[in-house]
């Protein structure tokens, strides 16, 4: 299929007098680059089997579906955009969108630069042994399960937890971190970042390790300070990686799972902790369990994300050389 497409693009033969030569050149170039197709084939196959074969399931969003129904047959009950309409007309639609958006955007603003910062800092630490030790420590929280993470949060930030005990012994008032709406987002976001910044930094650390030391030496000769070298040597070196991660993160911005929010949810913080995902989860528990509704919301979410991705990619292309495609 790809081959055919390439051949078609050679229709401009009439414009080019040396047509056959051009064709030959193209063919030669293709031959030279054909090995790339072989290299990419296994990945294409895996994605086809495990991602594309089941993808017809998105059609569930337009059906009245129960498990076991044929997704495409004459017994399928098509309902058009009903599932979407139900979501849009839900009294909670706007609060849910707002809560989801805010927690994602705040999470992104803190969570995106942090690993970059940390990798640059670790990279410019003088003791390499210390740097390695710190790196190991920083990745460790990634292995803590959500249940334990939230368990520790309640222990540390509970009314009689570590933090409140410290505050109280200093004469302060105890504060109910889990009942106040103001505390939910900071707790949620900071704990997520605590858990994952070190892990996300690994890729940047790896990219930094490929920086040519000669560049540093040249900069030193020019009299650059260590800080200047971070800005002018290290940062540009990982800029392509940063751009791509940025685009992909923006593309995944609205995707936030329900597990952690649900674990941290109390009646007190419900006004901010009810997210699209937790709400859908709860709706599935009361009344009719509704696969189609959940799929519709998932699809809606995906579309928002795709739009964001395209915007991010186009913007990035315009202002830098880096883009995803």
């Amino acid at each position: 299929m790809v081959l055919a497409a390439k051949k078609d693009s050679g229709t401009s033969r009439t414009d080019l007098p040396q047509g056959p030569v051009f064709q030959n050149k193209k063919l030669k170039a293709f031959k030279e680059n054909a090995p790339f197709l072989i290299m990419i084939f296994p990945a294409v196959l895996v994605v086809f089997l495990f991602n594309y074969l089941p993808i017809y399931g998105v059609l569930i969003a337009f059906q009245d579906f129960m498990p076991g129904d044929k997704i495409l047959s004459d017994t399928t009950i098509w309902v058009g955009f009903d599932n979407f309409k139900r979501f849009f007309s839900d009294p909670q639609f706007w609060p849910l969108m707002k809560n989801t958006f805010l927690i994602c955007i705040y999470g992104f603003i803190i969570g995106f630069p942090l690993p970059i910062l940390v990798s640059l800092m670790l990279n410019s630490l003088k003791g390499k042994k210390t740097a390695k030790f710190l790196q190991t420590i920083f990745t460790a929280p990634h292995f803590i399960s959500l249940v334990v993470l939230v368990g520790m949060l309640t222990l540390f930030f509970g009314r009689y937890g570590l933090v409140n005990n410290l505050v109280a012994s200093g004469g302060g008032e105890r504060y109910s971190y889990f009942l106040e709406t103001g505390a939910f987002r900071p707790l949620y976001i900071l704990s997520s970042n605590w858990q994952d910044f070190g892990w996300s930094a690994v890729i940047y650390i790896a990219a930094l390790s490929n920086v040519d030391p000669q560049q540093h030496e040249a900069a030193i000769l020019d009299g650059a300070t260590r800080f200047q070298r971070v800005i002018h040597v290290d940062l540009p070196a990982i800029m392509p990686m940063i751009s791509v991660m940025l685009i992909m993160s923006i593309g995944g911005l609205m995707g936030v799972g329900y597990e952690k929010a649900l674990l941290m949810q109390t009646d007190g913080n419900l006004a901010v902790s009810e997210l699209v995902s937790t709400y859908v989860y709860k709706r599935g528990l009361t009344g009719v369990p509704d696969q189609a509704y959940a799929t519709a919301i998932g699809l809606f979410n995906s579309i928002i994300n795709v739009v964001l991705l395209i915007i991010a990619n186009t913007t990035s292309k315009k202002f830098s050389e880096n883009s995803l495609w």
Partner: peptide, 19 residues
Amino acid sequence: LFMIYFIIPMFFGGGLIPF
């Protein structure tokens, strides 16, 4: 084309039952 081919599954999935 390959890039688009790989990007689509990042966003669209069929859900558990078809999988």
